[in-house]
């Protein structure tokens, strides 16, 4: 599965830059989700959604938006946050593995 959906027409240099950085950004996003405190999860997922989307990682962007919505929902508890984080992490690790497979990487986060 590719995590890149219909990229807009950028210049060749910009497109190459984006393509070269996608794997690194997915890996950074995974690391952020693993490490960040519960209190920072909404802000981090919000920020990551903007960055990943700009780098044409639309599927990852949507995953981050969904995570942000989940952890900012009314009445959510610690267990819900843990569940949302774990589900998003699994999805992001999958995207990273797919990306590395597509681009000849080793497929591990």
């Amino acid at each position: 599965m590719s995590s890149t959906d219909d990229p807009p027409a950028e210049s060749a240099a910009v497109q190459a830059f984006i393509a070269a950085r996608q794997g690194e950004l997915l890996a950074k996003a995974v690391a952020t989700l693993e490490d960040c405190a519960d209190d920072d999860l909404a802000a981090e997922s919000h920020r990551l959604a903007g960055t990943l989307g700009t780098y044409q990682l639309t599927t990852a962007q949507v995953a981050m938006r969904n995570l942000e919505s989940a952890v900012t929902a009314t009445g959510i508890g610690k267990a819900d946050i843990d569940h949302a984080r774990a589900a998003t992490l699994a999805a992001m690790r999958g995207l990273l593995a797919d990306h590395r497979a597509d681009t000849g990487g080793d497929g591990s986060p």
Binding site: S11, A13, V14, F17, I18, K28, T51, Y55
Partner: peptide, 14 residues
Amino acid sequence: DADLRGLVSLALSE
């Protein structure tokens, strides 16, 4: 955000 800053800078300098 260094990732966005780098991309924006490249697009502008291009």
